[in-house]
Design a binder for these strands. Sequence first.
RNA 1: GGCGGGGUAGCCAAGUGGUAAGGUCGCGGUCUGCAAAACCGCUAUUCGCGGGUUCGAUUCCCGCCCCCGCCUCCA
Length: 468
Amino acid sequence: MRFFNTYSREIEEFQPRDPAERKVGIYTCGPTVYSRAHIGNFRAYIFEDLLQRHLELRGYNVHRVMNMTDVDDKTIRGACEANIPLAEFTAPFKQAFFEDIETLRIKRADEFPAATDQHYIDRMIEMIGTLISRGLAYQADDKSVYFRINKFPDYGKLAHFDLTQLQSTGRVKHDEYDKEHIGDFALWKAWDEEDGDVGWESPWGRGRPGWHIECSAMATALLGDQIDIHCGGVDNIFPHHEAEIAQSEGVTGKKFVRYWLHCAHLLVDGQKMSKSLGNFYTLPNLLEKGYTGREIRYALMRVHYRAPLNFTWEGMEEARQALARIDEWLARLREVIAKKIDNEKNKTRPREQFEEALDDDLNISAALGFLFETIRETNRAMDRNELDAPSAEAWLDWWKRINKVLDLETENEILLPAEVAQLAKDREKARREKKWNQSDELRDRISARGWEVRDTKDGQKLTPRGTS
RNA sequence: GGCGGGGUAGCCAAGUGGUAAGGUCGCGGUCUGCAAAACCGCUAUUCGCGGGUUCGAUUCCCGCCCCCGCCUCCA
């Protein structure tokens, strides 16, 4: 198995810390719960889901942690504006997040530590204390504690940045007079009036943790000093992950992460989907348009994680059609099995290309290409009545195996509504009497109710469209 | 300005030093009363542009162009 490691900028053979036990520790940066996450955020989480599921398919025992950032400027501002306690403000967004990942069939992480958990606050304070004692951090005149990047020679290595070349984007306001170096980042932010009643006591006074330290504290607390894989969006490479390395290694003295994997952005109209640009869609936005969770999952999954993915409605339609093709294929395989078709002519058996494609830095496009090739070949055999039941069973087993990674099968059998059943019954009668106009009219009415009619040798078949 | 990612058909996209997977859309055909689904065929003499290496380059090298992102709290 090979992955592109952001640190080396090279494809590397994957070797976990504990190859014998096949244990893999993964840390993924989770949402900041100040508003509902948008589908660009979920592209990253789906990529991480694919990673976890493929590792598991290959026999690894994955332990994944995803943090919840429930204290930062935005959450505090939101709570202030709503005039409610911070926890009350973030709770519905946490809940919405869990609903959304369930809709998208994203496997839950083993742990979702929250930044405001006193246990982790304590750990952050402890780490900051250690960094200060080693000269890697200092308390400035503004009472905040900053990381001293000049004392950490590797700072900038992940992003390949030359620190003397850093330019301010003006996105974040700097308290330049308080910091020794413009690049020094906050570990502990001193309380100010805008924080209201949000704050924790520390050896440096009342305040709250900086964003980066929370991940270092939770990652090392739950996964140990060294973790196998750390993921996130490319926009987290700098400064967030760079800072995590500095803080963690500054405390433990050990290499923090073996493999850094970063996901490219979801674009809309060729631009990064983001809250600040206002060009974003949430999951409920797409569900309202009639798309289902698995259709959205497919649409967000089908492009390689390191390539930008442009979100379009055309892409959503493509996802729907592609899934219908898979559904149809599965239904046909099951039919062959049910009919116990026995034919010696075509004994086809599954191959390994799907898994091998994913071994290659999660090449999902190649993997799906192989799936669809397989679908065409087996459909062709079924058209000729040349696929026997054992072969169909073998392909179905194969699907069950790869679907552990894809998780794209329709969830529940949708019951035929009585109304549609009656229309179908009427249509059957009309067809027996060769009343074609009536038959076609009934087909339209059934179609208007979201069901598709097909006339086969065995009579009418009804399939729901756009199913979850 | 620095550092990345990307540029392959209408759209999405894989890929290799030896002549371009797959999905979707469109067109034609088989099947069908007509459809649908499925299958078959057609749809890139060509892979952003210009050089170079090579018997041969979309792939390797050099230069350039375009798009997107990051450059101190964005997945």
